[in-house]
Write a protein that binds this DNA or RNA. Structure first.
Lengths: 168, 168
DNA sequence: GCAGTCCGTCAACAAGGCTGACATATTTTG
DNA sequence: CAAAATATGTCAGCCTTGTTGACGGACTGC
């Protein structure tokens, strides 16, 4: 039933340090491979991962303000502004003055922005699609649950609200 | 039995884009929180994550050569050398001439290096310990399996050999 | 009217990747 | 033995992406 190698717990060692170390290393290697996917596409355009992240979350919450994006990404406005400026200049992101509060800028993707976001996320989706289908639905449930429990308790609610439901 | 919220698959949508996007975002947020743990300790000593990674894998494979470490980390020797030089100067890493091949340098942690490595990895172990115990052993199996399937096919065997068995 | 907020920007800095070029010692090979 | 290959270290410079600090302009809410 279960695919091979569910772990090194022959007699369930509770959470041995060995077991934990394996988790730490798997996170390191899996995340590295996972994030390497979009790099080729990004490199062609002279962008980096910061651009990818901005595109992802603007796509995710169209109309988000700069402050809203800062809260999600948890970087400084100077860092964000640097990539945002490029993306706006290059015509990938639309920045519109708020109607009720004209200090705010509401961000959204242009057609070109949508296209690039798709091109960037597709290899990652393909990787996950394959991994999920090879591991099976039960494993995927466990994967999701463990990642959720790894989140900082402080921001967990907010993150899960963003990840699981909120569309805008 | 299973803790709440195993995922958004009420009637198993195979792998919808929604489902995959949630996986992508969970990886982003979980990895961010996960790697934030050691930063406080590192900052006190003026080190960064690169130092942590070097310490981790030298601890993991005592006697590893510089080339061996490069292969694991997949960075350039210049990048590695920068942190390695500091760690040796600061007395955390021992660098010994190879006996059979004197061009090689075999790396290992000193007492101080072992202590720092432990201080760095402990908060990460604590986070995983808690997440694993909250999620339960089945979920942990799924977590591990999915991460394994997310690895690049090319290096998967080598990574799993390192992560799961090889001690030196 | 004024304090506070939201946004953008300038300047400077650091970590940690990268490339390219080269030096040195050592081992392997022809 | 001479030459090539290997392992390591180092210099110099570049890029991305994070950081602080300071400041100005536009706007809102009281």
């Amino acid at each position: 039933m279960a695919p091979p190698d569910q772990g090194p717990t022959p007699e369930m060692v509770l959470e041995s340090d060995e077991h934990l170390r394996e988790g730490i290393e798997l996170m390191f290697f899996a995340y590295r491979d996972f994030t390497s996917d979009p790099d080729a596409v990004l490199a062609e355009r002279g962008y980096g991962r910061a651009h990818h992240r901005a595109l992802h979350f603007i796509n995710r919450k169209p109309g988000v303000t700069v402050a809203g994006l800062l809260e999600i990404l948890r970087i400084t406005k100077q860092s964000l502004n640097r990539v945002l400026r490029q993306l706006v200049e290059d015509g990938l992101v639309r920045s519109e003055e708020g109607r009720s509060d004209r200090r705010q800028r509401h961000l959204s993707l242009t057609e070109a922005g949508l296209a690039l976001e798709k091109a960037l996320s597709e290899p990652q989706r393909a990787r996950l699609r394959r991994a999920f289908s090879e591991a099976g639905p039960e494993a995927v449930g466990g994967f999701r649950l463990v990642l959720q429990r790894m989140l900082d308790e402080g921001g967990r609610e907010a993150v899960l609200r963003l990840v699981e439901k909120e569309q805008r």
